[in-house]
């Protein structure tokens, strides 16, 4: 006895309407591959290049009531970004991170579209000019890549250094934005 897609959809909508869900997720296709995206009622909470085990990660962070359901606003803004029609995201964010992470990610959010900045320069902006390595760790664990543009942070010599989605993805995002690369 299989639940029909229509019945399944009705249940998911009812669950959301009743406010019973801690966190909603979906998997979006994009020019750089599938993206796992998740949001709470406060805003966008996660983007991941690696969907395996993400439901469990969400349950531990936001609560066990994890449900897959379309995230239309997130899909639309990401589609616009990948089409080259969006330079700034308007999505509210739900960041639940330690204070140092929050400081670094807040400054990261201000790095403009199509521009790059070094780990050291970002560290200086949070008042910790010698903490380039710690800033690198924050970039590595950025819960919302693309929207919080850690792909715009590069090494002191202009090298791409590293990226959770792979260096090829970092390069593609910077090329999409028309960044000047060394």
């Amino acid at each position: 006895m299989n639940v029909t897609p229509e019945l399944d959809k009705q249940f998911r909508q009812a669950a959301l309407r009743e406010g019973l869900i801690d966190v909603t997720y979906d998997i979006l296709d994009s020019p750089i591959g599938d993206l796992f995206v998740a949001a709470t009622d406060r805003g966008l909470a996660r983007i991941s290049y690696w969907p395996d085990g993400m439901e469990e990660t969400l349950a531990r962070t936001f609560g066990p009531r994890v449900l897959r359901s379309p995230l239309d606003d997130v899909r639309r803004e990401l589609d616009e970004y990948f089409a080259g029609n969006r330079r700034v995201f308007d999505l509210p964010l739900d960041l639940r991170v330690a204070p140092f992470y929050a400081d670094v990610l807040a400054k990261l959010a201000l790095v403009p579209y199509g521009q790059t900045e070094t780990y050291g320069a970002l560290a200086a902006k949070v008042g910790r000019p010698k903490a380039a390595r710690a800033v690198g760790t924050v970039m590595n664990r950025n819960p919302i890549p693309i929207v919080l543009p850690c792909h715009r942070i590069v090494g002191a010599n202009g090298s791409l250094t590293g990226y959770a989605g792979g260096l090829d993805v970092k390069l593609r995002l910077l090329q999409l934005e028309g960044a000047m690369l060394k």
Partner: peptide
């Protein structure tokens, strides 16, 4: 661990 609701739901619906 309590499984994410999605897994529980898909397993039993």
């Amino acid at each position: 661990e309590i499984p994410p609701f999605e897994r529980f739901y898909v397993e039993h619906r």
